[in-house]
Simulated assay, not measured.
Amino acid sequence: MKPNHLIMSLAITLSVMSTQARALDTTAVLNLETAKKMAAGCQAKAMEKGWRMSITIVDAGANPVYFQRMDGAYIASAELSQLKAENSAKMQMPTSLFEEFAYGKDKKGGLAPGLAELPGFVTLAGGIPFKTSKDFLGAIGVSGGYPNEDAECAQAGIDAVKSLLK
């Protein structure tokens, strides 16, 4: 191989490796500090309304990043918040849509009625995914109140870090 060809091949290889490294550097990832701020925003809403919630925040792979159970929250709300967060992250959509898919808007049957029968699948509102303008980061799951209260509390958690999700 001629020296010019060797140099050109090496330059191309290094360029490709450098581009791949930059792609990894620019992908947003959920960190513990942001997850704690989300939980604090959710807790503030819950305290304002007199709700006692369990809050779970997972990353884009549905791995737990942060969990908090407020004093007096139902024991089962801990597991439900986790399932809502995981399901929302895995499907990248709010869990309130799963309820609609399973039961329909009129509660007389949805497009995917078997969805509610899947083990570990929660069809209750309260799980909401979040992302930056270009990267999916994860989901928050909240349980302890009525489903609409759980969803409102979860949204308050996302709103608390909205400025960070650019």
Rank of each mutant, 00 (worst) to 15 (best):
T56K: 03
M17N: 13
A21G: 08
D106H: 08
A35G: 02
R22Q: 08
K37F: 03
F121M: 12
G138R: 13
A151G: 13
K84C: 00
E152M: 10
A154Q: 12
A46Y: 14
P119G: 11
R22N: 05
A73R: 11
A21L: 13
A139Q: 00
I128D: 00
A40P: 09
L111T: 11
L164H: 13
D71W: 05
K90M: 13
A46M: 13
N4P: 09
A112Y: 11
F121W: 02
R22C: 06
K2Y: 04
G109V: 00
N31I: 05
S133C: 00
I7K: 14
G126Y: 15
K2W: 01
T56N: 12
A23T: 02
V16F: 13
Q82M: 14
L165H: 05
K36S: 10
R69Q: 14
N87T: 05
V65L: 10
D159T: 04
N63D: 11
S9V: 14
A151N: 14
Q155V: 02
G72P: 10
P119T: 11
D150R: 05
G41C: 04
I75S: 10
D150Q: 12
G157Y: 06
C153H: 07
L32P: 03
L24Y: 09
Q20R: 09
G144I: 07
K45Y: 10
A151T: 02
L32S: 09
L10A: 15
G126L: 14
L6P: 08
V65M: 10
L97F: 03
L124V: 07
P94M: 00
T95K: 02
A11C: 09
K108M: 04
W51R: 05
M91S: 08
G41D: 04
G61E: 03
G126W: 12
M8I: 14
E86L: 04
G144A: 11
A78L: 10
A44I: 09
F98L: 15
K90H: 10
Y146I: 07
D71T: 03
F67G: 07
P94R: 02
P64R: 15
V29Y: 10
L111M: 12
L32Q: 13
M53W: 00
G120H: 03
L118K: 15
D150A: 11
L111P: 02
K108R: 01
D150V: 05
A78E: 12
Y103R: 07
F67R: 11
I7S: 13
G145H: 14
M53Q: 05
E99G: 08
E100P: 02
A116Y: 09
T56Q: 11
G72M: 07
A62R: 02
E48R: 12
E99N: 05
V161F: 01
L80N: 06
V65G: 01
A78F: 11
G61I: 06
Q155M: 03
A85M: 08
G138T: 14
A154K: 10
S96E: 02
A40F: 07
F98H: 06
T123I: 03
A28Q: 09
A151M: 14
N87G: 03
G104D: 02
V142F: 04
F67V: 06
A60Y: 01
Q92R: 15
G138E: 08
K36W: 09
F130L: 01
S96G: 08
P113K: 05
A112M: 04
E152S: 13
K105P: 01
A151V: 01
S9M: 15
M17S: 15
G126F: 12
R22A: 09
E117C: 07
F98T: 01
T95A: 00
Y66H: 09
L32F: 10
F121I: 12
